[in-house]
Measured scan of single mutants.
Amino acid sequence: MGQARALMGLSAQLDEELDFREGDVITIIGVPEPGWFEGELEGRRGIFPEGFVELLGPL
Results as ranks from 00 to 15, higher is better:
residue 1 M to S: 06
residue 1 M to H: 08
residue 1 M to Q: 05
residue 1 M to N: 02
residue 1 M to R: 09
residue 1 M to C: 09
residue 1 M to G: 06
residue 2 G to P: 07
residue 2 G to Q: 10
residue 3 Q to F: 14
residue 3 Q to R: 11
residue 3 Q to K: 14
residue 3 Q to D: 05
residue 3 Q to W: 06
residue 3 Q to Y: 13
residue 3 Q to S: 10
residue 3 Q to L: 11
residue 4 A to E: 07
residue 4 A to T: 02
residue 4 A to H: 02
residue 5 R to M: 11
residue 5 R to A: 01
residue 5 R to N: 03
residue 5 R to T: 07
residue 6 A to F: 08
residue 6 A to G: 04
residue 6 A to H: 00
residue 6 A to C: 05
residue 6 A to Q: 01
residue 7 L to D: 02
residue 7 L to T: 14
residue 7 L to W: 02
residue 8 M to N: 12
residue 8 M to W: 13
residue 8 M to R: 15
residue 9 G to E: 12
residue 9 G to I: 00
residue 9 G to N: 15
residue 10 L to T: 09
residue 10 L to E: 00
residue 10 L to G: 08
residue 11 S to W: 06
residue 11 S to Q: 15
residue 11 S to I: 13
residue 12 A to C: 08
residue 12 A to T: 15
residue 12 A to P: 14
residue 12 A to S: 15
residue 12 A to E: 06
residue 12 A to N: 13
residue 12 A to I: 06
residue 13 Q to K: 14
residue 13 Q to Y: 07
residue 13 Q to E: 15
residue 13 Q to H: 12
residue 13 Q to W: 06
residue 14 L to K: 15
residue 14 L to P: 10
residue 14 L to I: 14
residue 14 L to G: 15
residue 14 L to C: 15
residue 15 D to G: 11
residue 15 D to C: 08
residue 15 D to T: 09
residue 15 D to I: 06
residue 15 D to K: 09
residue 16 E to A: 12
residue 16 E to L: 09
residue 16 E to D: 13
residue 16 E to M: 12
residue 16 E to N: 13
residue 17 E to F: 11
residue 18 L to T: 00
residue 18 L to C: 03
residue 19 D to Q: 14
residue 19 D to M: 15
residue 19 D to S: 15
residue 19 D to A: 14
residue 19 D to L: 08
residue 20 F to Q: 11
residue 20 F to H: 03
residue 21 R to E: 13
residue 21 R to F: 06
residue 21 R to I: 11
residue 21 R to T: 12
residue 21 R to C: 13
residue 21 R to V: 14
residue 22 E to C: 10
residue 22 E to K: 15
residue 22 E to F: 06
residue 22 E to G: 06
residue 22 E to H: 02
residue 23 G to D: 07
residue 23 G to Q: 03
residue 23 G to N: 10
residue 23 G to M: 00
residue 23 G to P: 03
residue 23 G to R: 02
residue 24 D to M: 03
residue 24 D to N: 05
residue 24 D to Y: 03
residue 24 D to H: 01
residue 25 V to W: 06
residue 25 V to N: 05
residue 25 V to M: 12
residue 25 V to F: 07
residue 25 V to Q: 06
residue 26 I to P: 06
residue 26 I to Q: 02
residue 26 I to R: 01
residue 26 I to N: 00
residue 26 I to F: 01
residue 26 I to Y: 03
residue 27 T to D: 14
residue 27 T to A: 09
residue 28 I to H: 05
residue 29 I to G: 08
residue 29 I to F: 07
residue 30 G to D: 13
residue 30 G to I: 04
residue 31 V to Y: 08
residue 31 V to H: 12
residue 31 V to Q: 15
residue 31 V to E: 10
residue 31 V to I: 14
residue 31 V to M: 13
residue 32 P to K: 11
residue 32 P to I: 07
residue 35 G to D: 02
residue 35 G to C: 02
residue 35 G to A: 03
residue 36 W to V: 12
residue 36 W to M: 14
residue 36 W to A: 04
residue 36 W to N: 00
residue 36 W to Y: 14
residue 37 F to P: 00
residue 37 F to I: 07
residue 37 F to Q: 00
residue 37 F to R: 05
residue 37 F to V: 01
residue 38 E to V: 09
residue 38 E to N: 07
residue 39 G to L: 03
residue 39 G to A: 04
residue 39 G to R: 01
residue 39 G to W: 04
residue 40 E to H: 09
residue 40 E to T: 14
residue 40 E to G: 05
residue 40 E to M: 11
residue 41 L to T: 02
residue 41 L to A: 01
residue 41 L to H: 07
residue 42 E to K: 11
residue 42 E to G: 12
residue 43 G to S: 06
residue 43 G to I: 01
residue 43 G to R: 02
residue 44 R to Y: 01
residue 44 R to M: 00
residue 44 R to Q: 09
residue 45 R to K: 09
residue 45 R to M: 00
residue 46 G to D: 01
residue 46 G to V: 03
residue 46 G to Y: 02
residue 46 G to I: 03
residue 47 I to G: 00
residue 47 I to H: 05
residue 47 I to Y: 10
residue 48 F to G: 03
residue 50 E to H: 03
residue 50 E to I: 08
residue 50 E to R: 11
residue 50 E to C: 12
residue 50 E to P: 02
residue 50 E to A: 15
residue 51 G to H: 15
residue 51 G to V: 12
residue 51 G to A: 15
residue 51 G to Y: 13
residue 51 G to D: 14
residue 52 F to A: 15
residue 52 F to I: 10
residue 52 F to G: 08
residue 52 F to C: 14
residue 52 F to P: 03
residue 52 F to S: 14
residue 52 F to L: 13
residue 53 V to T: 06
residue 53 V to G: 03
residue 53 V to K: 04
residue 53 V to H: 00
residue 54 E to C: 08
residue 54 E to P: 01
residue 54 E to R: 08
residue 54 E to I: 06
residue 54 E to K: 10
residue 55 L to I: 10
residue 55 L to F: 07
residue 55 L to D: 01
residue 55 L to M: 09
residue 55 L to Q: 07
residue 56 L to S: 07
residue 56 L to T: 08
residue 56 L to F: 07
residue 56 L to N: 08
residue 57 G to E: 15
residue 58 P to L: 04
residue 58 P to Y: 02
residue 58 P to F: 07
residue 58 P to K: 08
residue 59 L to D: 12
residue 59 L to N: 13
residue 59 L to W: 08
residue 59 L to A: 08
residue 59 L to T: 06
